[in-house]
Computed example of a mutant assay.
Amino acid sequence: MKAQVKWVDGVMFVGETESGHAIVMDGAPASGGRNMGARPMEMLLLGMGGCTSFDVINILRKGRERVTDCHVEIEAERAESDPKVFTRIHAEFVVTGRNLSLAKVERAVSLSADKYCSASIMLGAMAEITHSVRIVEDDT
Rank of each mutant, 00 (worst) to 15 (best):
V8M: 14
V8F: 09
D9N: 15
D9H: 15
G10D: 09
V11L: 14
V11G: 07
M12P: 00
M12W: 05
G15N: 00
T17V: 00
T17C: 00
E18P: 00
S19T: 13
S19R: 15
H21A: 03
I23S: 09
M25N: 03
M25W: 01
D26R: 10
D26F: 13
D26M: 11
D26H: 12
G27W: 06
A28I: 09
P29W: 14
P29M: 12
R34A: 10
N35A: 09
N35M: 06
M36W: 13
M36V: 13
A38Y: 08
A38W: 08
P40Q: 05
P40E: 04
P40H: 05
M43P: 04
L44V: 15
L44G: 10
L45T: 11
L45S: 07
L46D: 11
L46K: 10
G49S: 06
G50R: 15
G50D: 12
C51W: 11
T52M: 04
S53E: 03
S53Y: 03
F54H: 13
D55K: 03
V56N: 01
V56C: 03
V56R: 00
I57E: 06
N58L: 13
N58W: 11
N58Y: 12
L60W: 11
R61K: 15
G63I: 10
G63R: 14
G63L: 13
R64T: 00
E65D: 07
E65P: 00
R66W: 07
R66K: 15
R66M: 11
V67E: 06
T68C: 02
D69R: 06
C70M: 15
H71W: 13
E75I: 09
A76T: 06
E77K: 04
E77L: 08
E77H: 04
E77F: 01
A79N: 02
E80K: 03
E80T: 08
S81E: 15
D82I: 04
P83A: 12
P83D: 10
K84P: 04
K84T: 14
K84V: 08
K84D: 07
F86V: 02
F86L: 04
R88H: 09
I89V: 14
A91R: 04
A91Y: 07
A91D: 06
E92C: 05
E92N: 03
F93D: 02
V94Q: 06
V95K: 11
V95G: 06
G97F: 14
L100R: 05
L100W: 13
L100I: 12
S101T: 14
S101Y: 13
A103P: 00
A103K: 15
K104P: 02
V105Y: 10
V105R: 01
E106A: 01
E106Y: 08
E106G: 02
A108K: 05
V109T: 06
S112K: 09
A113E: 12
Y116E: 01
Y116F: 01
C117K: 05
S118N: 03
S118K: 05
A119L: 04
S120I: 08
I121G: 08
L123A: 05
L123W: 09
L123M: 13
A125Q: 15
M126H: 14
A127T: 12
A127S: 14
E128N: 02
I129V: 15
I129S: 05
I129R: 06
T130S: 03
H131W: 12
H131I: 03
H131C: 02
H131S: 07
